[in-house]
Design a protein around this nucleic acid. Structure first.
Lengths: 238, 238
DNA sequence: TGCAAGAACATGTATATACAAGTTATAATA
DNA sequence: TATTATAACTTGTATATACATGTTCTTGCA
């Protein structure tokens, strides 16, 4: 199927990012948009609700939908996005060092959920990320072998998510992320250019497929001066 | 108006948190729910979409909606929530020290958006938060005097958000949050029990009303060992 | 018995209608 | 002219219908 509302959403995102409607101005009304896209008002509303959730617009009853323009030149870390997508969006020169790619049986609390009957081994991938000549991020990924039967050095150097979604055709659903500040481990000190910093910012993520099965655990360990996490949140009224 | 779908959403949240449906089990189907609540399927779907957005359920096509149960005993920091709501949810014994409450004309980049013609002054509120006998959070709030004409010591000791929403009847819309790690300022060292930590985790928030006008800027400065931020994210497919 | 087709049921998408409720511009009135 | 009432337009909620598409169970056939 075509999924009109998704097409309309992506088209509107493109227009917003091309500044067709500057920040704080109104986009066309739902009725106008339904004429423009030759569809029903309900379909337009589905697209607009997506825009609202992702922080592009604010809907104001009786008035219209205004462009928020707060995500504009920003670090889009909230949400689920791969390192490759991230650096591409921001036009960053980045380099990835694959420090480890192994298949092992790990006894760890965070990893436990990745094991399934007949799949005791998990993939462990350790990658250092270099930006502007400095190694400032250490990504430690663990994948369930049930959903990711094979993995290659080449894939890890390029983009694992691209491989998962386009080759293995896994459908990523949602993630639970936790941000904490920790003391650097010996591994952090060896693999990163920590320059004497006494803390690292860590994003720990559990990533689930669309059928709600856990398939990945990740620790993304950042040098604190280069760490930045941006979030968009709405107040749920009662 | 009654807003059926919101009532149904809150009722289902309550049931989920009371463990009526354990994690990884299915809730009743949309058709069953529409009979239970004596409403249309579309209204049920609006409630379920809210549950899905807030990370309570995962909808699986053809199968049903399963309880995720990942937010269960968790630190609900993502989203917009007041310190009082937070500590109440977690049953924490907390104490607030109002260190400053003043009205002044501040020339600062982050504050600039709070000023409006005829309202050059902004409220500045500095509060230290004590949990389990340790001062570990320093909240620095700035409010636009256009939307918050008056503010009292008593309100700051209790809950500013409660005052804003229930007394002033302001409707909070959305917020842009940024998490970074910084070196402690002299103020941090004086007002918090930093115990030699050489970093603080900082959440910088710009909070907007439902009509998209900026009315608050906040810096919430946390001792790194006590800092934790939990986020729920969905992958937006293309 | 084993497999396959189909029925029954699940969620997803698209459309239509009706009315509620907030905002703004217009027109009528004092 | 100034104020008020109204009309026109905005988004929000509730409902109904139809069909698409994915999953599961049952039935019937080989």
């Amino acid at each position: 199927m075509q999924k009109k509302y998704l097409n309309i959403y992506h088209d509107l995102v493109k227009k917003i990012e091309m500044n067709v409607w500057p920040a704080a101005t109104k986009i066309p009304s739902e009725n106008e948009l339904s004429k423009i896209y030759a569809t029903s008002r309900e379909t337009i509303r589905k697209a607009l609700n997506l825009l609202s959730q992702s922080g592009y617009i604010q809907k104001i009853r009786g008035k219209g939908s205004v462009i928020i323009g707060v995500n504009k030149f920003d670090f889009p870390v909230s949400g689920i996005i791969s390192f490759k997508e991230l650096t591409a969006n921001l036009n960053l020169k980045a380099k990835t060092w694959v420090e480890e790619l192994s298949l092992k049986d790990i006894d760890d609390e965070e990893i436990a959920g990745l094991k399934e009957p007949g799949h005791d081994n998990v993939w462990k991938v350790v990658r250092a990320r270099e930006i502007s000549g400095e190694k400032i991020i250490l990504d430690k990924d663990y994948f369930s072998t049930k959903y990711v039967p094979s993995l290659s050095q080449k894939v890890c150097e390029d983009s694992i998510y691209d491989y998962l979604e386009n080759e293995l055709e896994l459908v990523i659903g949602f993630a639970r992320k936790e941000i904490v500040v920790e003391e650097p481990t010996e591994e952090d000190r060896q693999l990163l250019d920590l320059e004497g910093f006494s803390n690292v910012a860590v994003i720990k993520s559990q990533v689930y497929l669309a059928d709600a099965s856990l398939f990945q655990y990740t620790e993304s360990r950042h040098r604190p001066d280069k760490f930045r996490f941006v979030d968009f949140a709405r107040r749920i009224k009662n």
